[in-house]
Structures are given as structure tokens and as C-alpha cells.
């Protein structure tokens, strides 16, 4: 039996992966600096606490990606005959459960604060003899937590599309929208400054809903992947065109009457089968071997395919 391919990325995409890994290391280092800074200036603001927890959580996709990217291309073996591609799906599921759970917790926490009419108090500090309201320092920390994140998100997005990697895409897409969280928290802090106690809890509620929305979207995606849903385009979530193209390609072979292709996503690659109804009096074995090679060569994302011969099929 022929073994699964050991390395899933073609040579032209390997430098992209390298670049992405570097960007993810930068992301983690930057997020650590953000969370430390935000923790130091957090005070009693609910919006700050929520934004801080969101920043802590936003490290998860980057960490998951870095761990998974060390494992995913290990060669298949007797224990894991299909290789380690699904490590990305597991990492994606773990991250999304954490995100959704934390979003839910934050929403309830903010709602309780709103109902209890909790009035946040922010003190002041002295820098070189000048008194500065801590709210201004929090706003500066929030700007630091928002602006570079958006830049990193925009940097990672095209690379994620190239690699068709969901964790990376989610990470980039969430980071790109990070300024919304920072802006909401800033509005909350300014609200406190103007004596509007409810602005803080309301901003926190808005942020927690955005965390929850991201978590839910990712969770749905991760579960669908693990349930072997048909491969989808990471951006639009529409059926990936490769499957249709393969079916058309197979139907074009002169020894085939018609065919049906079924694929599933395993991490960033597709694995599946093509069921073929062949014409009579053809050299089936030779054609199947040749056909399989042709399909595997069609696109790097087609990592493994099984060709079966039959007269009827389901699915």
C-alpha cells in the first residue's frame, strides 16, 4: 500500500508557512505585552476587564496554530495511518470553545454589573508631578491593544487564504476587527469620565457579544469540519470549487461513463474518494493508478484520494 504524502505543502507555499509562523510569534509577543500593560492599568472598569480577557483569549489561535504547525506534517504511521492533519481541527475546536465560553461568561458578568448599577471608579496617578486620570492611561493602553493588532490581521489575512488554513484565517479576521473592541472600551472609559456609569457596562456587554459571536462562528465551523462536512472556501463558506473540478476532470476521461467525488477537510488539506462507473473492456487497474496520480497532481490541497469502481453510489 502506498503511504500518505509526508509533507502537505508544495515548495512555493513552504516560505509562506515560515512567514506566517514568524508573524504568529510576533503576535504572541505583542499580545503578551498588551495583556501585561492592560492588567496593570485595568482598575475597576468592566469594559477594560472584558477587553483584557479578550486580548488574553486572542493569544489562543496563535498558540494553537504554532503548536499544530509543528505536528501537522508528521508522516503517517501505524498508529495514525491518516497522518496528523486533523491536529489543526482539534486546535481550532479548542480555541473556539474557549472563545465562546468566555464570551458567555463576560456577557453575564457585564449584565449583572448593569443590573446591579455598579458605578465604576477610576483613580489617578502622578507622572513627573503631573496628576493624570487613569482613564487616559487606559485609553492609551487600549489604542496600543488595537492599532498594531489590525496591522497584524491585515498582514496575516492574505497568507491564510493562500494556505487555506482556518485557524490562521480566524485569527487574522478577529485581529483585523480588534479595533472595534478597543473603540468600544474607549467609549466606555470616556463615558465613565463624563459621569455616565452605565457606559462602561454597556461597552463591556457589546464586547462580550462580539467575543461570543466569534466563538459561535468558529465553534460551528470546527464542529462541521470534524463532522466531515464538504470542503468549503474559508472566506465565503461556499462549497470549495476543487471538488467540482475533479469530478469534471474524471468525467472527461475516455474510460469513464460518470463519477461522483466526495471529499472532506483534514486541517488545511482535502482527503476523499472518487467513485467511478467505468466503460466495459477497459484496463481498470492501469487506469485507476494513472487516474489517482492525475488527481493528486491537480492541486496540493488534494492530499489523498481513493478511486473506487461501482455502478451506483450514495452521498
Amino acid at each position: 500500500m502506498k503511504q500518505f504524502k509526508d509533507f502537505e505543502l508544495p515548495p512555493d507555499l513552504q516560505p509562506v508557512m515560515k512567514k506566517v509562523r514568524k508573524l504568529e510569534y510576533i503576535t504572541i509577543a505583542y499580545l503578551i505585552s498588551v495583556t501585561v500593560l492592560m492588567y496593570l492599568v485595568m482598575g475597576t472598569s468592566q469594559a477594560m476587564k472584558t477587553a483584557w480577557l479578550e486580548d488574553v483569549l486572542s493569544m489562543l489561535p496563535a498558540i494553537s496554530f504554532l503548536i499544530a504547525s509543528r505536528i501537522y506534517d508528521r508522516p503517517a504511521n501505524a498508529t495514525f495511518p491518516y497522518g496528523y492533519h486533523r491536529v489543526f481541527s482539534i486546535a481550532f475546536l479548542t480555541g473556539s470553545v474557549a472563545l465562546f465560553g468566555m464570551g458567555l461568561y463576560l456577557a453575564v458578568d457585564s449584565l449583572i454589573n448593569l443590573i446591579k448599577m455598579e458605578h465604576p471608579t477610576i483613580g489617578s496617578t502622578f507622572i513627573f508631578g503631573h496628576q493624570i486620570w487613569m482613564g487616559w492611561i487606559m485609553i492609551a493602553a487600549l489604542i496600543y491593544s488595537g492599532a498594531p493588532a489590525v496591522w497584524l490581521g491585515y498582514k496575516k489575512l492574505p497568507l491564510a487564504k493562500k494556505l487555506h488554513n482556518k485557524i490562521l484565517y480566524t485569527d487574522a479576521d478577529t485581529q483585523k476587527a480588534d479595533y472595534m473592541t478597543a473603540l468600544a472600551a474607549i467609549i466606555g472609559i470616556v463615558g465613565i469620565g463624563f459621569g455616565l456609569w452605565w457606559a462602561d457596562a454597556l461597552a463591556a456587554l457589546f464586547i462580550s457579544f462580539s467575543v461570543m459571536k466569534d466563538g459561535y462562528k468558529n465553534l460551528r465551523n470546527a464542529i462541521c469540519d470534524l463532522m466531515d462536512r464538504y470542503p468549503v472556501d474559508i472566506e465565503k463558506e461556499k462549497p470549495h470549487p476543487i471538488v467540482k473540478h475533479i469530478e469534471e476532470m474524471v468525467n472527461g476521461w475516455d474510460w469513464v461513463i460518470d463519477s461522483h467525488a466526495k471529499f472532506r477537510e483534514e486541517g488545511q488539506v482535502f482527503i476523499g474518494e472518487v467513485q467511478i462507473r467505468p466503460r466495459e473492456q477497459t484496463d481498470i487497474i492501469k487506469n485507476l493508478v494513472k487516474g489517482r496520480e492525475e488527481i493528486l497532481a491537480y492541486h496540493w490541497k488534494i492530499h489523498e484520494v481513493t478511486l473506487t469502481v461501482g455502478t451506483e453510489w450514495e452521498g
Partner: peptide, 11 residues
């Protein structure tokens, strides 16, 4: 709680 100007002036 919430009296931020008062806290500011005391500090």
C-alpha cells in the same frame, strides 16, 4: 462609587 472627580481631587 462612581464619584471620580471627588476621588481625583482627594488624590
Amino acid at each position: 462609587k462612581g464619584e471620580n472627580r471627588l476621588v481625583f481631587e482627594i488624590e
